[in-house]
Design a protein around this nucleic acid. Sequence first.
DNA 1: TATTATAGGTAATATAAGTTGCGCAACAAC
DNA 2: GTTGTTGCGCAACTTATATTACCTATAATA
Lengths: 189, 189
Amino acid sequence: MPPKFKFTKDEIISAALNLVRKNGMSALTARALAEELGCSVKPIFGLFKNMDELQQAVFSAAQNLYQSYLQDSVSKGEYPTYKSAGMAYIRFAKEEKELFKLLFMRDRRNEKIEENREDVRQFTDLIMEKLGISEDEAYMFHLEMWIYVHGIATMIATSYLEWSDTLVSETLTDIFTGLKHRYLQKGKE
Amino acid sequence: MPPKFKFTKDEIISAALNLVRKNGMSALTARALAEELGCSVKPIFGLFKNMDELQQAVFSAAQNLYQSYLQDSVSKGEYPTYKSAGMAYIRFAKEEKELFKLLFMRDRRNEKIEENREDVRQFTDLIMEKLGISEDEAYMFHLEMWIYVHGIATMIATSYLEWSDTLVSETLTDIFTGLKHRYLQKGKE
DNA sequence: TATTATAGGTAATATAAGTTGCGCAACAAC
DNA sequence: GTTGTTGCGCAACTTATATTACCTATAATA
């Protein structure tokens, strides 16, 4: 009996994500989103309890988008799996600067470490296998490698740096090789 | 004939910097600052045209604080000059997380590149001398090294990572050594 | 001590944001 | 076609912020 909803949750989240990817989370206001959708603010609050709930949803949508970068990059098979992950992270930073800031340049105080550990395990496993080193060493290896990847990505996301995919790719290989020598050397001592 | 000012510009900037170092620039509101100073908002607007001007002043004060980190680190002579700079950057990230974000994790679109080039020249000069490589190579060397330093620093500033000074120092040396080998190798080809 | 320019406190104004009450209108069931 | 439910547009209310008008209090000088 009641009227149909003018928009679905997904349509609203999608419009919200568009605002955020252009100007960051602070650009996501009820009025701006209503404008983007071509309606009043009422439909928004009909489907979301408040703006906080919507922000959560947008955050999740951003995470999903990043996951799709990751999967695309890996499944394309242009690089080894581990390298694909780094390339995807950096490509995401280049193409979705605001979303990258939102996901990866935010404060991590009050973060559950366990989640992160789980995300990282797949990488450490890859490295253990590839280099034949212990899990702890593989964790440190990955951390050092990822510090580098994260460094490039943050510089690109803040427009401090502009590097072509080719340059990124070559440099990552060089860094990886350097690290590998160091870690394999360590094993011989 | 007029009454004395209740505060100097420096006192206001200092109180403002205190707010910002604790909770970031968004915590710097006229009312909060007045509260911190124990006065109404009037003295603030008597000495600063508006909040924007005050923000600029706080930004400069933050830059000065970073410079003092840099100078202290270099003049202490605990490490070679170049390494001191990296250590200072990372120590600043650890001890002044909000100020680090303000200075070094901000958007650089619309930035004059020349300023940066000048900041960097002193480092490239050091490296040219130390390794005997060309200016362009030294620039790339520094950039790669600094990507790493920046990576650690941003991770620490966002509380994603906690590393002791000792671990940082050792790892920086390892990275530097690895890079040096690569760049000197390159020269031989 | 009286004068006078002006800093400072109080409270008003302006703007932007989230949230909500009111009444109309859509629409499925009858 | 009537009806009951409820989404929606409009405009109001609320809160937080910057900025300012107005008046009082201060302090150097005559």
